[in-house]
Computed example of a mutant assay.
Amino acid sequence: MLPLRLSDIAAASVHLFTALGAVCGLFAALAAFDGAWERMFIWLGVALVIDGIDGTFARMAHVEERLPRFSGERLDLVVDYVTYVFVPALALLRAGFLTGTWGLVIAALILLSSLYHFSDLASKGEDYSFIGFPAIWNVVAFYVFVLSPPAWLTYTILLALVVLTFVPMPWVHPMRVKRLRTLTLAVTAAWAIAAIAAVWSGFPAPVWTQVVLVAAALYLCGLTVERVLQGRWDD
C-alpha cells in the first residue's frame, strides 16, 4: 500500500470542500420546505461562495495531479445542479411564485433546460463567458423573491431564460470579464452588499436594495448585449 502523503490529503480535502456545497443544498431545501426563505438563501449563498473559491484551492493543491481518478469538474457540476437549479425551482413552487399546471411545467423546463446546459461541452467560451443562459436559477429565484413581480412577468421572464439557454450567445462572467473590469468588479461588490442586506432585512426587500440589484443586473446584461451587437467574443 502506498503511503498517504500530506499533499494527497490536501487534494482530497479540496474535493470534500466542494462536496459541502451539496450539504448546503440539503439545508437550503429543508429551509424551503419550512418556508424560511431568508435561511434558504443564506445556505445557497454559502454554496455560491464555496463554488467561487474551490477552484483556487484546487489549483493550489494540484488536485488533478494528486487525484487523477476523481474529477473535480464532475463533482462541481453535480453540486451546482442541486444548488443552482433544483433547490431554486423547488423554492419558486413552494413559495407560490409558480402555481398550478403551468407552474409545474415551467419548473420542469427549468430542470430540463439546465441539464442541457450542464451537459453541453461547449457551454463555456475561451474567455470564460457562458454560452447560452448559464442556468443561474439561484440568482433568478433570488430576484423573484426580492422584487415579487406580478405572476405574468415572472412566468414570461422564466420562459425567456429557458429559451435563451439554447441560444449560443456569450454571457459575461462578472469575475472574468476584461473590458471595464474595475467597474464590473465594483458593480459586483455593490450587488453582493445589496443581496446580503436584502436577505438580512427579509422579503420583500427594502427599495434601495431592489434598485441596486436591478441596476447591477441591467449593467451585466448590457455588457452581454453589447458584446453580441458589436461582435466582441473575446474580451
Score class of each variant (00 low, 15 high):
1 M>W: 09
2 L>E: 15
2 L>Y: 12
3 P>N: 10
4 L>E: 04
4 L>Y: 07
6 L>I: 14
6 L>G: 04
9 I>A: 13
10 A>N: 06
13 S>N: 13
16 L>V: 14
19 A>E: 06
19 A>R: 03
20 L>K: 00
22 A>D: 06
23 V>I: 13
25 G>F: 00
29 A>Y: 00
30 L>G: 07
31 A>C: 10
32 A>V: 15
33 F>Q: 10
36 A>K: 12
36 A>P: 07
37 W>E: 06
39 R>G: 02
40 M>T: 10
41 F>R: 00
42 I>N: 07
44 L>Y: 04
45 G>V: 07
45 G>P: 04
48 L>V: 10
50 I>V: 14
55 G>S: 07
56 T>D: 11
56 T>P: 01
57 F>P: 03
58 A>M: 06
59 R>N: 04
62 H>Y: 12
64 E>D: 12
64 E>K: 15
65 E>Y: 09
66 R>W: 09
69 R>T: 15
70 F>W: 15
72 G>L: 04
73 E>W: 13
75 L>S: 12
75 L>C: 06
76 D>S: 13
76 D>N: 15
77 L>Y: 15
79 V>H: 02
83 T>R: 12
84 Y>G: 01
86 F>Q: 03
86 F>R: 05
88 P>T: 07
89 A>E: 04
93 L>W: 03
93 L>K: 04
93 L>Q: 09
105 V>M: 09
107 A>W: 01
111 L>F: 06
118 F>M: 09
118 F>D: 03
119 S>R: 14
119 S>D: 04
122 A>D: 08
122 A>L: 14
123 S>Q: 14
125 G>Q: 07
126 E>S: 15
128 Y>H: 12
128 Y>R: 12
130 F>Q: 02
130 F>R: 04
133 F>A: 02
134 P>H: 07
134 P>V: 12
135 A>Q: 08
135 A>E: 05
137 W>S: 00
138 N>A: 05
139 V>N: 11
141 A>M: 05
141 A>G: 11
142 F>M: 08
142 F>T: 06
142 F>R: 11
144 V>T: 07
145 F>N: 01
145 F>V: 05
148 S>I: 10
152 W>N: 05
152 W>C: 11
156 T>Y: 10
158 L>G: 02
158 L>I: 07
162 V>A: 06
164 L>C: 05
166 F>N: 09
167 V>H: 05
169 M>E: 14
169 M>K: 14
170 P>I: 03
171 W>G: 00
173 H>C: 10
173 H>F: 15
174 P>D: 09
176 R>E: 14
177 V>G: 00
177 V>K: 03
178 K>E: 00
179 R>S: 13
182 T>I: 08
182 T>R: 15
185 L>S: 08
185 L>T: 10
188 T>S: 14
188 T>N: 13
189 A>C: 08
194 A>F: 04
195 A>K: 00
199 V>F: 00
199 V>R: 01
200 W>C: 03
202 G>V: 01
203 F>H: 01
204 P>H: 05
206 P>V: 03
210 Q>F: 02
211 V>E: 12
213 L>T: 01
217 A>E: 03
217 A>P: 00
219 Y>Q: 06
220 L>Y: 09
222 G>K: 06
223 L>P: 00
223 L>C: 08
223 L>W: 02
224 T>S: 14
224 T>R: 09
225 V>N: 04
229 L>T: 11
229 L>Q: 15
229 L>A: 12
230 Q>H: 13
231 G>L: 05
231 G>R: 14
232 R>K: 15
233 W>G: 09
234 D>C: 11
234 D>A: 08
235 D>Y: 11
